[in-house]
Design a protein around this nucleic acid. Structure first.
Lengths: 241, 241
DNA sequence: CGCAAGTTTGACGTACATCAAGTAGTGTGG
DNA sequence: CCACACTACTTGATGTACGTCAAACTTGCG
């Protein structure tokens, strides 16, 4: 169908939507079974966003699901007095906007210049009814998202600043195939708003990890994990009973 | 099929599992369409749990989904040093254990003596493949859970103690059909571990609301909301930009 | 190179945690 | 039905991790 997307409730400074989709679309997709993913290739539209541009806003009708191709996306909510909480970061290969009620509950913005593919929800739903594999894929993505959000809850509710930072670094590492050289596309403020801290606390925490030789930093966006076990111990501290 | 459940990875002090299901099972179900819900009636087993008994533990294989009939359930995780975070409370009519990866990520326990119906996941999945309505119901339950958990994240990341308490009371009210007379089945410690606070802070917060005439309290588990608007204002403070 | 945005560091303040009594429920046995 | 004990809750005094305010430093883009 090669849908050319018109709707796109998208903000001011979008770079240039409606590029014709230059497939393949699948890289980084960790596909559960080739079939449902390849079906997706026919219904996506490519969109580009500049840093801080909104993909959708809280309250917008949830008509699409998105996949990150390059760059990074954050979903966040802002309280009246300016306090902001970031719900999640989405990196290349990740789907977002999947939290579909009738409206989006969060705003999605580009952390850095980003390329995204948009899939009309109606077509996705139709596909899910026909293909059980697609249905399972959607369910599995939802479950993964729910599980990640629940871990976020534990972190925010019960961990200290240093533990939160360690948790953040370790989970980024795990998402990048256990590579200890991390590229952080987001600012300190983004990290702070994700971890429920202030920018100063994040900065101090990173400095402390440097002093403890748990990490090495080169330029604010390049971190190397030097002692993964210590960081994981800090990050988790988990058990049952 | 009237499955008689044997598995039930359930703790010590379960009262008496394997009662023959005394249908109807549907009350409080807010069913989206009668069809998929009635299909559920044939595959459920009734289980009873005493206060603090575990329905399942973190790490248990996720073989069932549950629905609360009476009482209340909490899902929680405990860190090594005893810090505990409650992810959610489930009240009569609510489904839980739906966060199915291969394993449960959280422990589920009875807040108060509870009756629960357990549905084998395998049969639920089979049903979902046959009936699109059931599939939609499952997706919608997952989405609702995700949305609630995301709101929990915002609360934990960015709200003050009083705001958290207000948020808790208001969301309980909304779940009980906007009745301002609330019955809190959980202890102050449960509330604290849900809101990321200590028991003392919760207690002081409630006392302050009493002094401000925002609520009235009769016995630790009976609260009447006296000024819903003020509480909602505290709870939300929301906007987008 | 030069400026602005982003980050780090320091000094100080505060909301909530911790520690410690006290008080009110709740269930049990006489 | 009351006495007792136990648990749950409340209140007070004090401590501290993190927030706030402010200034210096670094980085990267025009």
């Amino acid at each position: 169908m090669t849908a050319m997307l018109q709707i796109a409730p998208v903000a001011h400074d979008k770079i240039s939507a409606r590029t014709q989709a230059p497939w393949p679309v699948l890289e980084g997709g960790k596909s559960e079974s080739a079939d449902p993913m390849s079906a997706l290739q026919n219904i996506g539209s490519v969109l580009k966003f500049k840093r801080n541009a909104a993909v959708f806003n809280q309250g917008d009708p949830a008509r699409h699901v998105y996949k990150v191709i390059s760059g990074a996306i954050r979903t966040c909510r802002v309280l009246m007095d300016g306090r902001r909480q970031i719900a999640d970061f989405y990196l290349p290969g990740d789907f977002f906007g999947l939290d579909w009620q009738s409206e989006h509950g969060f705003t999605a913005e580009a952390v850095a210049d980003a390329v995204v593919i948009s899939y009309p929800r109606s077509q996705l739903e139709a596909l899910a009814e026909q293909k059980p594999a697609m249905q399972k894929l959607l369910m599995s993505m939802l479950c993964k998202g729910l599980s990640a959000t629940q871990n976020h809850v534990v972190m925010l509710g019960r961990q200290t600043a240093q533990e939160r930072l360690a948790w953040f670094l370790v989970s980024l590492m795990q998402r990048s195939d256990d590579n200890t050289d991390l590229d952080l596309p987001m600012s300190r403020l983004d990290i702070a708003d994700y971890l429920g801290l202030t920018i100063e606390t994040v900065s101090r925490g990173i400095s402390q990890f440097k002093r403890q030789h748990l990490i090495a930093v080169s330029g604010a966006h390049q971190v190397t994990l030097k002692n993964v076990e210590a960081l994981e111990a800090l990050a988790c501290g988990e058990s049952e009973i």
